[in-house]
Amino acid sequence: MLKEKKISIVIFPGSNCDRDLFVALEKCLGTKPEFIWHNCSHIKSTDMILIPGGFSFGDYLRAGIIATKSPAIREVIRFSKKGVPIIGICNGFQILIECGLLEGALIKNSNQLFKCEKVNLKVINNKTIFTKNYKLSEIISLPIAHSQGNYFIKPDKLKKIEDNDQIIFKYSSDFGDVTEKYNPNGSVNNIAGISNKKKNVIGLMPHPERAIENFHNGIDGIKFFKNLKDLI
């Protein structure tokens, strides 16, 4: 009998989407994830790690930075080097950026607003392990809720991640127009989600775990999680 694969969710003081993520993974993949507390210094084994949204350590100093000094993050980095898939959502994305697994920075929204709304995303790269069941340029609709989601990267580095197909999702219209009008936070080139060079680490600001029930504002999150089926 095949050993059941293990999905881990890392929780920090101030994480608040961990249970939503648990429910989403259980519903969409039929697997119960395990919770890892942030001060865990040894994760014995795992087949996928997710870092949930929230306000780890109260967003003190810069969103995500304090969390990067937690022992569990050293383990996340260790498993990422082995090729284990890692997903950061919202504050999880900020943490993956601050710990250096993903490039660039997430700064305050240019419009000075906490943006809490439904956005459209265009799938820019459908060749990653996370997005291979999407069509190229497919439009999906997910909620965002953040004040520091303005993706910044220097022009020379931007070109590098573009050339290496590391841009995964961009904010767009219903019809896939990627223009300033559909940019909720000022992100460079409407970037909403990126991957690392090896494509086993992904971070995105929108919340797929908040779009999986009929009473949610949309159910496009189901496909996001079902896409992970092949990985576990």
């Binding site: 700064i107 305050k108 419009n111 000075q112 000022g186």
Partner: peptide, 8 residues
């Protein structure tokens, strides 16, 4: 780097 707080 845009600082919305400084702008405000």
């Amino acid at each position: 780097i845009l600082d919305p707080e400084a702008e405000a």
